[in-house]
């Protein structure tokens, strides 16, 4: 799914990633933790094909990042720091635009919103009027709409209420069971430590610890 070797990525002239080696397989749920400014978000953005790889080799979903970042971008599901929503459009309009632009059937929008517990009375409300947590839920619904095989979630629990956090956990587990890979950067360790199958610690733009803690999620059709 993800193969990074000696990856260096720059933000301006700053090496946010200073040589990262990481291999992630299908059905893994990877928790990326580390102090602020460690390079967690940059790692996710590189995996999403949004940042140029300065040196090293990177392959995501079978695409070489130095050759075809566009192909990677088209197939991942990324929840970033910002929610990438248009303030002046309604919740439904935002997701319908996103679905149409991503060439996903518009019928998948309503179930996704339902899945994230976004009440139908909010569907026709402009995104600028939502609370931070509601915004995150809509952005997450955007990821769900795509049914990606690689989920890249940056602080997926941030700003969510108890029920929202439970929904995220369920989403992550279900995605892995369906054969997808989930990489999430998080500070909410008490919640994510048990959720993850593997713990990766990032500091100083490198990986300082990498440990598998349990077997990857069994697939729906897995015998085991």
């Amino acid at each position: 799914m993800v193969r990074l070797r000696g990856v260096v990525a720059l933000l301006g002239r700053f090496p946010a990633l200073a040589g990262v080696d990481l291999e992630i397989d299908a059905r893994e749920i990877v928790l990326v933790q580390g102090p602020n400014g460690a390079g967690k978000s940059t790692l996710l953005r590189v995996c999403a094909g949004l940042l140029r790889v300065e040196s090293g080799t990177a392959e995501v979903l079978g695409h070489d990042l130095s050759v075809d970042r566009a192909a990677v971008r088209r197939s991942v599901g990324l929840l970033g720091h910002d929610t990438a929503l248009y303030d002046d459009l309604t919740v439904l309009e935002n997701l319908q635009f996103w679905a149409a632009a991503s060439r996903v059937a518009p019928e998948s929008v309503l179930p996704a919103l339902d899945r994230l517990g976004v009440a139908s009375r909010l569907h026709a409300v402009a995104v600028s009027r939502l609370s931070a947590g509601q915004r995150r839920r809509v952005a997450l619904a955007g990821v769900v709409v795509r049914r990606p095989t690689l989920w890249l979630l940056d602080e997926p629990h941030a700003g969510l209420d108890q029920r929202g956090r439970d929904l995220v956990d369920q989403l992550v587990v279900d995605a892995a069971r369906a054969g997808a890979t989930v990489v999430m950067a998080s500070h909410e360790l008490d919640r994510t430590v048990d959720l993850a199958t593997r713990h990766v610690t990032v500091a100083g733009g490198t990986i300082t610890a990498d440990r598998q803690v349990r077997a990857a999620e069994p697939g729906d059709h897995d015998a085991s």
Partner: peptide, 25 residues
Amino acid sequence: LRVGDLDEAIIERRAEALHDESPVL
């Protein structure tokens, strides 16, 4: 100079990890 800087910057960046006090999982 900047490319030279980059190698140095990478070393500096990696050194940040030594001060990492986040919990070991």
